[in-house]
């Protein structure tokens, strides 16, 4: 009997229900750039404003999946870094919110046009051109000629030496596919992908994996963003970076505020700060060789010189839309990936 009374009594006393959460000046940052850059951004923002930053680093695909899974109850406030496509897709699905930063007049045009193509729900923070890098030691050991154009990669001598990511799983590889379609036209672009398929030794899952494998000597040529290749070369690996002669596509690393953010004011504060020249100069400290979007920010000496690279007029609005994306990926799946190698 005693036990029953105790149960009842305690359940009466403890009959407390829901509770929410309140934060005192804190910010949850989802970061999709490299780890040390993310850390540096978070700590520097804390120093500059006194706002506590909780930072999670995940790849842009993983972060997009997380924001989507959390959409009915957002946990994150601001999403910084990572290639632009998932940011555009998030904007298209209404996962991120519109914001007009007062810092906009300090930015390059490409950063603003990225914002405009997404209804001002995202903005460009850096850009990087697509290209490839190769391991000079391995190329010499296999007597391979030095490649300098996209079409060079179709030569039969490179069979089994080229690596790129799978466009289904990587934004980098999708940018490659979309760039080829824009450089050569759709039909010839797919012919190029079919020719390339014969020389590919592996479609990796992650976008920058091919150049990392090349750095370690596990692969000869990796199709990646050039700043990723430069990073490996600066780290001491025998990597040579190539800006293909036909011209090339590029990515715009972006930033968005998550719709329904719990700390909206702090998120806007971070947004404005991250667009400042001072915040973008932090990239130099962590060997991030992307081109910053603030016109006043510095670019590293080792970074690929954008003025010498032939950039195509990449149509982010068209090729970032989920319909076009699905169509191209399905076509690649059906016409390219099934071919024997």
């Amino acid at each position: 009997m005693k036990k029953i009374k105790a149960t009842i009594a305690s359940s009466m006393v403890l009959f407390a229900a829901s509770a929410g959460a309140s934060y005192a000046d804190s910010l949850t940052l989802y970061c999709s750039a490299q780890e040390d850059w993310c850390q540096l951004m978070a700590r520097s923002f804390e120093d500059a404003t006194g706002i506590d930053v909780d930072m999670t680093r995940k790849s842009s695909g993983e972060t997009f999946a997380q924001i989507r899974a959390e959409s009915s109850n957002p946990k994150g406030d601001v999403w910084w870094g990572g290639t632009g496509d998932p940011h555009l897709q998030a904007a298209e699905e209404g996962l991120t919110m519109e914001y007009m930063s007062p810092m906009r007049d300090q930015l390059h045009d490409w950063a603003i046009s990225q914002a405009e193509s997404a209804g001002n729900k995202t903005i460009g923070i850096y850009s990087g051109a697509l290209g490839y890098g190769y391991n000079t030691d391995l190329a010499a050991a296999n007597n391979l000629p030095e490649p300098s154009c996209w079409k060079d990669l179709l030569k039969p001598e490179y069979k089994g030496h080229v690596q790129m990511a799978n466009p289904n799983s990587s934004g980098t590889a999708y940018t490659t596919l979309a760039s080829m379609v824009q450089i050569f036209g759709e039909d010839e672009g797919f012919e190029f992908m079919k020719g390339l398929h014969k020389n590919i030794n592996q479609y990796t899952k992650s976008g920058s994996a091919p150049i990392k494998a090349a750095a370690r000597g596990e692969n000869t040529i990796g199709i990646v963003f050039m700043h990723d290749a430069v990073k490996q070369a600066v780290a001491g690996f025998p990597i040579k970076v190539v800006a293909p002669c036909e011209g090339t596509g590029y990515e715009i690393g972006s930033m968005s505020i998550i719709d329904g953010a719990r700390n909206e004011d702090e998120a806007k504060q971070f947004y404005d700060w991250a667009l400042s020249a001072e915040a973008q100069n932090l990239a130099l400290q962590v060997n991030a060789f992307q081109v910053p979007s603030n016109t006043g920010a510095q670019t590293s000496d080792s970074a690929p010189d954008m003025s010498t690279i032939k950039l195509i007029d990449y149509d982010f609005k068209k090729y970032g839309s989920s319909d076009e994306r699905k169509r191209l990926l399905r076509k690649w799946d059906e016409e390219v990936s099934v071919l024997p190698q």
Binding site: T7, F15, A16
Partner: peptide, 22 residues
């Protein structure tokens, strides 16, 4: 609207469960 359950709900649920099993 309400947010997630906390201690109170956890204890209430436990209490109800054990009333039921008793």
């Amino acid at each position: 609207r309400q947010f997630g359950m906390g201690y109170g709900a956890m204890f209430s649920a436990t209490a109800f469960l054990f009333l039921l099993t008793q």
